[in-house]
Design a protein around this nucleic acid. Sequence first.
DNA 1: GCAGAATATGCCTCAACGAGCATATGCCTG
DNA 2: CAGGCATATGCTCGTTGAGGCATATTCTGC
Lengths: 104, 104
Amino acid sequence: MAPFEVIAEPTRRQMLDLLRVRERPVGELVDVLTISQPTASKHLRVLRDAGMVESRIEAQRRIYRICPGPLREIDAWLAPYRRMWSERLDDLERHLETMQDLPE
Amino acid sequence: MAPFEVIAEPTRRQMLDLLRVRERPVGELVDVLTISQPTASKHLRVLRDAGMVESRIEAQRRIYRICPGPLREIDAWLAPYRRMWSERLDDLERHLETMQDLPE
DNA sequence: GCAGAATATGCCTCAACGAGCATATGCCTG
DNA sequence: CAGGCATATGCTCGTTGAGGCATATTCTGC
């Protein structure tokens, strides 16, 4: 599944947001997000297949941690648009300067 | 439709990429992307409802142009992860410096 | 080895989405 | 105002994805 589709799912974004803070076992994600355990496992499967998380085994638990790498593809696609905001911001700044020079 | 779901569709991302360069009529998007005209119109509808494009009428044509605003939501979500790459890059740099200090 | 905890998987159902096709709408020209 | 061009919409169908539930798997401690 492509990175863009992976993060289209709100629950998966929340999972990444939680794992970004610190690594966590599945049960903790289930508790915090109040979702069923199978649902959590399936979303984690998708995230793992997409290379966005890794899991480590600790006793009966699987501790998941984030791998932000694949998100760079999204960031790369977004980059040109980010420049557009900056340009528009520059336009705004110039406009404000003009307003200062020529107060109506 | 949420911005994340809108850009999950490859054709819609291509449309945005084309409109980012310059505004274009529907027919041009149809030709460049080699998709059917109804398909193009439907995707443009989704993009318009999401506030990512605007259309202007010129004779029988509708000229579409980009409105990058809603993409900022995606960029905002992505920002913390972008910081993670920077940190890792810093780690790599420190590691390389250490290698220089202690060549094995 | 067994009971139980933690997680993964399989199967089913339902809803949503995208494409194709036909058709409607709007506008311009002769 | 008729005919044609450009675009939008409606309908249908096939596919996909997410959740619920039951069950399989794996590990631990006794």
